[in-house]
Simulated assay, not measured.
Amino acid sequence: MNQGSLDLALTWDGSEIVVADVGSARPQVASVLLGLPAAALGDVVCRLFGICRQAQAAAAGLCVRAARGERLAAVALDELALPVAIETISEHLGHLLIAWPTLLADPRQPPRVAACGDWRRRLRAATDRQSAATVAAALVDWLDDADLPPLDEQPPAAATAPLLPRLTAAEWETVAAVENFALRPTLGGEAAETGALARQADDARIAGLLAAGRRLDARLLARLLELRWLAAALAEPPRLSSLLDACAVRVGAGLARVETARGSLLHRLELAGDDVAHYQIVAPTEWNFHPQGAFVREISGCPASSRRAAQLAGERLALSLDPCVAFSCRLIDA
């Protein structure tokens, strides 16, 4: 299924990007699921999504079980969380491999970045929990020894979005009940930034970068910190259960939360008998590329002395937020 795209329009006055607008051609995938038997959801969701497939399938499965009033034992949550964690590690590595050279002042690809592709292949070749844990342990050692070049200097953003706190599925239920929440999600009336930066914001190094206005660097470091945590946690599966949970909304309805590489993913389901009567998916991209979200706030007011500088600033910021679909930046003269 075509996952759509984002059109990022930047209005430039010759010295700065004065305003930005996000146009989304993302299809409402959840509508495809209406009327399906609940037992078929997992397979259909796996076919629909090319990115974060394991996370999407886990969220769908958790929704169904919550709607049926089933309580998952800790070991069952561990089993669901393991492929999500492996997928998240792979997504983080893929992002570093593709986006990092573009974010660097020196466009030449550092050897350490190129190695991310090798680690992805090794992880995908792991056939069981033990082999995945073995690869992950070696990955932790590599990350600890990595000499990672800093990003180019960036001017502090004039405005930023608040960071999304990690809420449980039960806490999300009251928030997600708002009409059109899946299209334009907010928390406390504000669009927030989700992803590794939000999850790692308590780290002292991240806090220092945020205080200095170095948000691109902070997002990169947050991914690296999360990579280390996930890789180490593969050897201790119970630690991974924090990546997901679910709750019964009422009889026949459930909500699930899964933490993905790009941020918090929510699925909300209502059943009529054993068929899907209502389905809602809130992807991280809907948060970070909300019309008043992280991308729009951060790029608005960004200094840019040339068209090329404005274009690059938009592309760098979009890459650092890692949308789950293709995007294009276009300039509009003020």
Score class of each variant (00 low, 15 high):
residue 8 L to C: 03
residue 12 W to P: 14
residue 12 W to E: 09
residue 13 D to W: 14
residue 15 S to D: 09
residue 16 E to Q: 14
residue 16 E to G: 02
residue 16 E to I: 02
residue 17 I to E: 05
residue 17 I to W: 08
residue 19 V to W: 04
residue 20 A to P: 01
residue 21 D to K: 10
residue 21 D to M: 06
residue 22 V to C: 06
residue 24 S to P: 00
residue 25 A to H: 08
residue 27 P to Y: 05
residue 29 V to K: 13
residue 30 A to S: 13
residue 31 S to P: 00
residue 31 S to H: 13
residue 32 V to C: 10
residue 33 L to I: 01
residue 33 L to M: 01
residue 34 L to T: 02
residue 35 G to I: 01
residue 36 L to T: 09
residue 36 L to Y: 10
residue 36 L to F: 09
residue 37 P to A: 09
residue 37 P to V: 12
residue 37 P to M: 12
residue 38 A to G: 10
residue 40 A to T: 13
residue 42 G to F: 04
residue 44 V to T: 14
residue 46 C to K: 05
residue 46 C to G: 04
residue 47 R to V: 08
residue 48 L to F: 01
residue 49 F to D: 06
residue 49 F to T: 07
residue 50 G to N: 03
residue 50 G to T: 04
residue 50 G to C: 04
residue 50 G to K: 04
residue 51 I to W: 06
residue 52 C to Y: 01
residue 52 C to M: 06
residue 54 Q to H: 15
residue 54 Q to G: 15
residue 54 Q to E: 15
residue 55 A to G: 06
residue 56 Q to W: 07
residue 56 Q to C: 11
residue 56 Q to M: 13
residue 57 A to R: 15
residue 57 A to F: 09
residue 58 A to K: 06
residue 58 A to G: 07
residue 60 A to W: 00
residue 60 A to T: 01
residue 60 A to E: 02
residue 61 G to A: 08
residue 61 G to Y: 10
residue 61 G to N: 09
residue 62 L to G: 11
residue 62 L to R: 13
residue 63 C to S: 14
residue 63 C to Y: 03
residue 63 C to Q: 13
residue 63 C to R: 12
residue 64 V to C: 08
residue 65 R to V: 05
residue 65 R to K: 12
residue 67 A to N: 11
residue 67 A to D: 10
residue 68 R to N: 07
residue 71 R to T: 15
residue 72 L to V: 01
residue 72 L to T: 01
residue 73 A to I: 00
residue 73 A to K: 05
residue 74 A to I: 00
residue 75 V to H: 05
residue 77 L to D: 00
residue 77 L to T: 00
residue 78 D to G: 02
residue 78 D to A: 07
residue 79 E to S: 11
residue 80 L to E: 00
residue 80 L to P: 01
residue 80 L to Y: 01
residue 81 A to Y: 10
residue 81 A to F: 12
residue 83 P to R: 15
residue 84 V to E: 02
residue 84 V to L: 06
residue 85 A to W: 08
residue 85 A to M: 14
residue 86 I to W: 09
residue 86 I to S: 13
residue 88 T to Y: 08
residue 88 T to K: 12
residue 88 T to E: 13
residue 89 I to A: 03
residue 90 S to G: 12
residue 91 E to A: 09
residue 92 H to V: 11
residue 92 H to T: 14
residue 93 L to R: 02
residue 94 G to N: 10
residue 96 L to T: 14
residue 96 L to S: 11
residue 97 L to E: 13
residue 97 L to A: 08
residue 97 L to R: 10
residue 98 I to P: 08
residue 98 I to W: 15
residue 99 A to G: 07
residue 100 W to V: 09
residue 104 L to P: 10
residue 104 L to H: 12
residue 105 A to W: 05
residue 108 R to G: 06
residue 109 Q to G: 04
residue 110 P to L: 05
residue 111 P to K: 11
residue 112 R to L: 07
residue 113 V to S: 03
residue 113 V to D: 00
residue 114 A to W: 04
residue 116 C to M: 03
residue 118 D to H: 15
residue 119 W to V: 00
residue 119 W to G: 00
residue 120 R to S: 01
residue 121 R to Y: 02
residue 121 R to E: 07
residue 121 R to T: 07
residue 123 L to T: 02
residue 124 R to K: 02
residue 126 A to N: 04
residue 127 T to Y: 05
residue 127 T to A: 11
residue 128 D to A: 00
residue 130 Q to R: 12
residue 131 S to K: 06
residue 132 A to P: 02
residue 132 A to D: 02
residue 133 A to D: 08
residue 135 V to L: 05
residue 136 A to Q: 00
residue 137 A to G: 13
residue 138 A to H: 14
residue 139 L to Y: 07
residue 140 V to D: 14
